[in-house]
Design a protein around this nucleic acid. Sequence first.
DNA 1: CCATTTTACGGGAACATTCCCAATGTTGTT
DNA 2: AACAACATTGGGAATGTTCCCGTAAAATGG
Lengths: 337, 337
Amino acid sequence: MKRHQITIVDIANKLNLSKSTVSRVLTGHPSVSEKTRKAVLELAEKMDYQRNMLSISLLNQKSNTIGIIVPEFMSSYFPQVIIGAQEIAAQEGYNTIICHSNENYETEVANTKLMLANQVDGVLVSITKETRNFDHLKVFERKGIPIVFFNRVCEDMSVPKVVVDDYEGAFRAVEHLIKRKKKRIAHLAGPDSLPISVKRLRGYRDALKKYEIPIDEELIIPYDLTLAKVKIYVNHLLQLDNPPDAIFAINDPTAIEAIKIIRKKGLRVPEDMAVVGFSNDYVSELIDPPLTTVSQPVKEMGSTAARLLIDQINREVSEWKSIIRVLKTELIVRKSS
Amino acid sequence: MKRHQITIVDIANKLNLSKSTVSRVLTGHPSVSEKTRKAVLELAEKMDYQRNMLSISLLNQKSNTIGIIVPEFMSSYFPQVIIGAQEIAAQEGYNTIICHSNENYETEVANTKLMLANQVDGVLVSITKETRNFDHLKVFERKGIPIVFFNRVCEDMSVPKVVVDDYEGAFRAVEHLIKRKKKRIAHLAGPDSLPISVKRLRGYRDALKKYEIPIDEELIIPYDLTLAKVKIYVNHLLQLDNPPDAIFAINDPTAIEAIKIIRKKGLRVPEDMAVVGFSNDYVSELIDPPLTTVSQPVKEMGSTAARLLIDQINREVSEWKSIIRVLKTELIVRKSS
DNA sequence: CCATTTTACGGGAACATTCCCAATGTTGTT
DNA sequence: AACAACATTGGGAATGTTCCCGTAAAATGG
């Protein structure tokens, strides 16, 4: 049994009208008599009529849909960004398609194809830690489909970006540790491919420089954000001849994992080893000890990015190109430091 | 400037072919010569051609898209369900469109409209705590669009459902508290509108009955899952003439909030007040003290639901109707009890 | 070399909707 | 009564794709 969808033609036939007239009623066009308008609206309601967006989108060459591609979905970070973005999108009559690439480059490429095939009017993207080739994203540029990066950006594409002041945040965090009299501060850094890693590392270095603390390259460990590896690196740090007395971690999950391992070794946080994270995840204030961290306006990041994207969709301009919105971070001092 | 999308007609014209032939190549139809096949594929690649799913969906009366409606997005619970569902969906060539209703009935209704307008082939739904009228969901039934409930189900619709053994899980949790010599066990319950609340409450009652512990209605507090209210209720419990020595909470966020408040009062967990949650959120093992809780196979819930839905979409049957998949829970004992 | 089969391709309808243009009917004005 | 102006409706193209049907050319068989 092939189920038949209720269309405006069905309504038109039942009322001996043309589809044009029915369409006019449904789109709110003025030139239609009150009598037919009422009849159409009533029947539409009764028949559970729902306009078919597919055909409308096809006709208008506009789907009123934006795509969001995020690298992961486990921590509270990206879901919250999405909430912020969806709020604005919904307000502006845009629909959202969400994909997570699972930190996998191939999946990310597949996701962009899917977005294109589904005729999104624009995309919000935060890349995976593996992404080094950006051809799949440049397709959007070539096709004139607006794209906005957030958090994990691609630096050599001149499109709008929304980030936080990673350098500043990292600087403050490390400065805070120094003021707590910590002398050997290690940094569990992110992969070099991500600008956030690079910037936070630079913040770390400059803070040490400012307070004339020698930088020990042994204490800087870039890693691939696979939580399982944290154990290896933390143990490595603890077994150094001259072990660190503090760790500044690239993000909160890393910091939390580090605390777990440090405590399992019988050491105290923060007395033996202070730990500071980045992002202020939902969990961070709940753990023991509560984590000192650099908070970011997460929801705002989503809404700012969405706003930027929709502005770009509506007016067609190119001066937008190189806009970079930098949101403020804030150091939140808790018991872990 | 109106941007022109690359279509099969463009490719056809460039190669002096008909759109039919180009379409045949792109869909992998056999009856086309090797020479033209190669030419078409090459040009398509060069022109960044992407098939327009809108037109295909319109033509096929099938969008290959499923909708997922969840009540919230903050805790790790629903994101993980979504991951499980998306995995299966992607595998089967289905696309996902996700909406969160923000625990708000009107938003949920709006979301269903959006799903319908976008011609989803099926929907996965977990209702809000407010939802008492199900007309908006029955529309799917009337239109013959498969629907599967998960976690928060609507009991008076005979469609497939995926749940966990809430009764069993709650029973075990309370039994565990009893074995820990707790005599007065309170229950921070969910709203009556949700079957999960009702079932967990029943498990609570039956466990007490089995061990012949009198049920004190004063210790059963149904609440609306607004975390801010937990403070009021916990304080209320603590100020009773005969206060409880344990709390069984409807979910982990509630339990965690309760612990925070109890400790702020200077009481010890679990000595003065044991606390048990439900769901085993990502956070639960990280907090202090680690939370005893009933773990659910979250990702599996998503994948099972998606599987059920897609089966329903593919074969058109009605014996599916009343399938209920009950997934197993497991009591995880940690330090909070 | 002619008849028949096979191979490769083109033409056109269909999907649901909107919007422009034309057509009909109705009212008002002189 | 004739004509203009306006209100209301209908017809048809267009959006991008697939698939059925038809047809020409090439290949095969005797």
